[in-house]
Design a protein around this nucleic acid. Sequence first.
DNA 1: GTCTATAATCTGATAGAC
DNA 2: GTCTATCAGATTATAGAC
Lengths: 220, 220
Amino acid sequence: MTVQPEVEVTGSAPLDRRAVRRQESKDEIIAAAWDLVRDQGLAGLTMRDLGKRVGMKAQSIYSYFASKHEIYDAMFHQGYLAFAAATADVWAIPGSEAEVAEDPLGDARRAAHSFFEFCTSDPVRYQLLFQRTIPDFVPSDESFAVAVAAYDAMAAKLAGFGVTDPESVDLWTAVLTGLSDQQISNDPGGDRWERVIDRAVEMALREIAPHLFEPSTPSP
Amino acid sequence: MTVQPEVEVTGSAPLDRRAVRRQESKDEIIAAAWDLVRDQGLAGLTMRDLGKRVGMKAQSIYSYFASKHEIYDAMFHQGYLAFAAATADVWAIPGSEAEVAEDPLGDARRAAHSFFEFCTSDPVRYQLLFQRTIPDFVPSDESFAVAVAAYDAMAAKLAGFGVTDPESVDLWTAVLTGLSDQQISNDPGGDRWERVIDRAVEMALREIAPHLFEPSTPSP
DNA sequence: GTCTATAATCTGATAGAC
DNA sequence: GTCTATCAGATTATAGAC
């Protein structure tokens, strides 16, 4: 006869079953919230509709989240965790862990496509994470810290290419967000700006990291 | 003794005084609406608040606009007229009317700064004109035509630089909107991305119009 | 932890007097 | 053309029973 341990031994925090179920419910609510805003727009999130989606009365949601803003904040937090994970995935490619990148152009190209895909695959998430469109919504310090960490990771990788000038980093982010933004706003569901990513990446790298394009084995 | 003409002779449309006053009231309402959305956010426009700003009961506004969407549409229309005017101003600089531009790099730089200034000086207008953030709002055909005309004028000027490839035009717009978007989202009121405009312009032109950078007077 | 009931407020829009 | 009155409904959030 098997016995369930009273206390979780694998997790670092001592979560009892009640806390686990509670967290599951919170996750379920957030997932339903994402579904809802994808249908109704980011500002179209209402407690009643959210309750319907999750199979609950709107008022019951307040047992899990103190306010609607707290729900937005949880979505913001989760969104940046997903962003950090997507970013980490790209860099976790054989050869790219090296101190000095072996194929910087390829790495940058993969990163650009990944960022573009992340943004355009979920325009509402893009709106929440990267634009200021919900009046009065200010991310909590904790959520904001996740966002900053994701940005720092990107800047660190650029530094690996020898790009440390802050203005060059800004130029790089402007190009990437410009492509994504135009795609979302002017050709949703299409590929008009996706087709120009590779050109944009080489263009930007030639500007911010010209040394990558100098001949590596100069003739003696 | 001077006599006022009974009928306007300068205007093309026969507007009587009543129609003029009516148009003035409509303009006043739209101006108040801009004030309001700059304070409350684009989605924060309500008929009651708008009424307060214009010194009118909310219900009276319906004498001028059939619905709230019609107000958004008038703002959209006016915004693109302003955009077209700002664009025309930049190109109306001595030397730039020529069939073949004499100082294409300077022209492009001025155009970029003008676009950036137009976008960042009024983020809410940027949101209404260039992003899809108001659920269910679709510009009327007439308003949309103004937007298309403004885009065509920009494409025509690029063609004057010898840039006719559609993908090159898309690359150009991506760079410009990327700079503006990052400025609005990540450094509102600052100049972090403004400082990188000139670099971005030369970078983009080298990519989409490399012939501009070839020596113009080759040695014999 | 979920419910009912409800507070308190806001929403866009219409009817009709003046 | 502006008003009062009002509809018909939505909104977030709280109190308290079970």
